[in-house]
């Protein structure tokens, strides 16, 4: 059984920081590149990654992120997060990792399916029109589980 190929993954993206969003996108896209069926379910602040008004404004968290190596008080200085984001985006562009909005389009073109979480959409007072066209549907958690049936679920 260990050698059996993964056929389907359903990835939940729950965070709205740059470092929170990218792993989900890279894993979903990577799945499609291997011929694995991929669903992406955006919930809570993860919704920002597919919200038209927010997608271009996603930033790296420089506060409360010990791995950054920046003391919290320095990370809190205005402009720190923007600068860290700028630096990271530049590095990613070199590696041919697209900006989030382009990545969403790419995953959709690759046949990955994107969904928004109903509870979060209601909580933030959003509507289907607030999301990028690539978002197929707003799903309840129950519908998400039905969709994920028979595959693996990955929470990020």
């Amino acid at each position: 059984m260990a050698d059996e190929k993964i056929k389907k993954v359903s990835i939940i993206c729950s965070k709205g920081s740059l470092e929170g969003v990218y792993p989900a996108l890279i894993m979903a896209n990577g799945a499609r590149m291997e011929g694995i069926e991929a669903n992406l379910f955006f919930t809570f602040f993860g919704l920002d990654a597919v919200t038209k008004k927010k997608v271009k404004k996603i930033k790296v968290a420089t506060v409360g992120n010990p791995a950054m190596g920046i003391p919290t008080l320095i990370g809190a200085i205005p402009g720190m997060s923007a600068m860290a984001t700028w630096m990271m985006n530049k590095k990613m562009d070199k590696l041919d990792i697209p900006p989030i909005d382009e990545f969403i389009e790419m995953i959709n073109a690759a046949g990955g399916k994107l969904y928004a979480c109903k509870a979060s959409v209601d909580m933030f007072g959003l509507e289907k029109d607030d999301f990028m066209d690539e978002v197929k549907k707003i799903l309840t958690v129950g519908e998400f589980y039905a969709l994920a049936a028979g595959g693996h679920i990955i929470f990020t």
Binding site: R32, M33, E34, G35, M106, A109, A110, G111
Partner: peptide, 14 residues
């Protein structure tokens, strides 16, 4: 990208 997946299904780049 969409064409690539149609031309080389299930792992286009590989």
């Amino acid at each position: 990208t969409k064409d690539l997946y149609e031309l080389f299904p299930d792992g286009p780049l590989k």
